[in-house]
Design a protein around this nucleic acid. Structure first.
Lengths: 216, 216
DNA sequence: GGCTCCAGATTGTTAGACAAGTATACCGAG
DNA sequence: CTCGGTATACTTGTCTAACAATCTGGAGCC
């Protein structure tokens, strides 16, 4: 197999590399990802390549029908809307709960600090800290299952971002201002208002991204 | 392999049979589920058994650490609380959205009709229609991702019910009354009140189940 | 030109083998 | 008798090789 540390096993290493290639945009959504290609590309046996592909299919990164090659999944406008609406449902619930206890998640504030260092820069650079901000809010609940559900959504967002190559993003200033407003309202215990700001925040991103994915 | 229609393939068939055995209680949580055992039990090759096991591990039905046999996962009180709190987050959001449009889900009312036929009977018989009621509310959103997240939770509830063998259930009358009240409030457009009834409804079930799983 | 059928390609499944890792039983030392 | 280290058995992880099932695309025929 390809060099590198083996923390878990060959299959997981290949799956990780494949996922990185998929969301990094190195694998076009049209190209077929055959088991044989993966096996030779990473110098592993075909069963291992098969297992890695199936893992990514289960995650939703790849899609496949029986006896057909797998492909990188292409997200359309409907998928983007579904992702963002599901995000909003989970995250509003999290915000309401945190506000009820006036519990401001520190990790979210730290993510905001990193966003602030990119003020005036490109919006592409803040995709990562932005997702960290939102994940921090959900993770603050300490709920394994809620966090897992939300994580799969952020993975899809990341993949979507790679697909649109930075088109349709919101300005850094606006994002940061709304984030800070949300944290303030949580600290004030006004969950309803915080949820409203979040809904608008995600709603705008949803519209921009949905438009971006449908105009290639 | 064992007889039966092969709609998808050997691996899926074995995974389905294994899942049924796990949530049906035929596999005690203590017993080790080895690849060799699964392979001989269903007359398939070991790689196929391995794939089926890994699928169930990904679903959360089984658990496994590296180089150790898989086991049916035992849900403790913390797990039950996590499941129910996550359910509440998703379902409250769904109820609020439906109430905002005064959209009463027909499928939920139908599930209630079936529950009504068991009035005075055992609570075990209504586990299925009860979960159908709650799933119908979420599915009414028409969101693939939200429904998928919720489905994995109901599967865990089902597994939990098999584990406690009917102990710690709520009376059929109470469940039915609260269901109808929720549907009424949705039709009235009072999402806040409907969500409050739901929170109490799930909260009580959470406490009962959490107590039941910790007293074997 | 449209339909049928065949060949190539790809996945699905199986068999057997060996390596690697973990847990447990056993045995010796204190 | 207890404690600790070793050795063995069991299980999983991965590979090679092969064949069956199925889908795709194009050649040939009507």
């Amino acid at each position: 197999m390809v060099e590198g540390i083996r923390v878990t096993g060959v299959v997981d290493a290949v799956a990780e590399a494949l996922r990185a290639a998929a969301i990094g945009g190195e694998l076009e959504p049209e190209r077929a990802v055959t088991e044989a290609w993966v096996a030779s590309r990473f110098a592993v046996a075909r069963p291992s390549a098969k297992a890695a592909i199936e893992k990514l299919v289960a995650e939703g990164v790849l899609e496949r029908t029986a006896h057909r090659s797998a492909r990188v999944r292409r997200l359309d406008a409907d998928a983007v809307r579904d992702v963002y609406r599901t995000r909003r449902r989970i995250e509003s619930a999290a915000i309401r709960e945190l506000a009820a206890e006036r519990r401001r998640p520190d990790a979210a504030a730290e993510a905001d600090a990193e966003i602030a260092t990119h003020l005036g820069g490109s919006s592409v650079d803040i995709v990562d800290p932005d997702l960290r901000f939102h994940s921090a809010i959900v993770d603050a609940l300490g709920s394994e299952r809620t966090s897992r559900a939300y994580r799969s959504l952020t993975e899809e967002v990341r993949q979507c971002m790679a697909q649109v190559q930075g088109r349709g993003l919101i300005s850094v200033d606006t994002i940061l201002a709304e984030h800070e407003r949300i944290l303030e309202l949580i600290a004030d215990g006004d969950g309803e208002a915080a949820a409203a700001v979040l809904a608008e925040h995600l709603g705008r991103a949803e519209e921009r991204l949905a438009a971006a994915v449908s105009t290639p």
